[in-house]
């Protein structure tokens, strides 16, 4: 939208990948002119003038493709990306892809931390690319696929195992009682809704699972997100006591809640601030209570 003529014309420094100028265009059509204009804008950085070397930063990205010559051996590529106020890691990846290398591959969609597509290993920590400001990170910014998951290509990991675990906990509402009737809702107190609120925020990004040492060592461990899903239903008063008992039994098994060693790594990385470790602990306590009841 901006019709502003860029004032600063400092060129951004490029390390390995530099924006190519399309020199071979025969005639400048309307579209070409606009494109050139846009490229010029890209080169200049809006906002407060800064020292030239601070205008760009280095983005180091993990690359791998199982079937492309030269990419079968994992490597890191460096991209020079101009800094802009408000820029996120996802913006930087998109910039690198659209400017230098269209084969750079990563999942993303919503750009607002609701679709859970872009959990990545950024500077050694699981984070959502779209939710991480470049200005908050040490440079160079290093982006890798989520650890402990098979890499499909570049930053894309196989999510099947994560989905299997999510599906394994009967992740759907199962009330003891029949629905209360035509146009009638099940009643739930605002307090109970508050109690489960945080647990319902999960966006299935897989960051927690990837950060968990236990999950890394035990492939059958349900993992924090799936246990949290079980918590979400077990604590929902609309389901009723029988179902709660059943759900606790599902959790109270070898690869369930007892595997957790309360290291808090999942809680620390969850982009939705879900108190995962606390939820797991609470289910442990509930399971113990239930076992005592039957003794």
């Amino acid at each position: 939208m901006s019709t502003q003529v860029p004032k600063e014309d400092e060129r951004t420094e490029s390390v390995e990948h530099e924006a190519e100028d399309s020199a071979e265009q025969p005639e400048a059509s309307h579209g070409d002119r606009r494109r050139a204009d846009r490229d010029a804008k890209r080169q200049s950085v809006s906002g407060a003038p800064a020292e030239p070397e601070q205008d760009a930063f280095r983005l180091k990205v993990f690359r791998y493709d199982p079937e492309v010559e030269g990419k079968m051996e994992p490597r890191f590529d460096d991209f020079s990306v101009p800094r802009e106020k408000g820029m996120t890691v996802l913006d930087a990846l998109i910039y690198a892809r659209d400017t230098y290398d269209t084969t750079l591959t990563f999942r993303h969609s919503c750009r607002q931390a609701v679709c859970g597509s872009d959990a990545l290993f950024i500077n050694g920590r699981q984070r959502l690319g779209c939710q991480t400001q470049i200005s908050d990170l040490d440079k160079p910014v290093r982006v890798e696929p989520l650890p402990h998951q098979d890499v499909v290509k570049d930053l894309v990991v196989d999510m099947e195992h994560f989905y299997d675990q999510m599906h394994a906990v009967e992740p759907f509402f199962q009330p003891d009682e029949e629905s209360p009737g035509d146009l009638e809702e099940y009643r739930q107190s605002p307090e109970n809704r508050e109690e489960i609120k945080m647990s319902t925020r999960c966006i299935w990004c897989g960051a927690c699972m990837s950060s968990c040492n236990i999950a890394a060592g035990d492939n059958q461990y349900l993992g924090p997100a799936a246990i949290n899903k079980a918590y979400r239903f077990a604590m929902d008063e609309r389901e009723g006591e029988n179902m709660k008992e059943h759900r606790l039994n599902v959790m109270d098994q070898e690869h369930g809640v007892w595997r957790c060693q309360t290291q808090f790594s999942c809680t620390n990385v969850c982009p939705k601030d879900i108190p995962l470790t606390e939820h797991i602990q609470e289910l442990k306590r509930e399971a113990v209570k239930q076992n005592l009841k039957f003794w």
Binding site: F172, P175, E185, Y186, R187, P190, R193, T200, D236, R238
Partner: peptide
């Protein structure tokens, strides 16, 4: 209401509706 009956966590009034 069907969504509610499938467990959707709607915000609630004091009477639970």
């Amino acid at each position: 209401v069907q969504l509610e009956n499938w467990g959707m966590p709607f915000s609630r009034e004091d009477d639970g509706t």
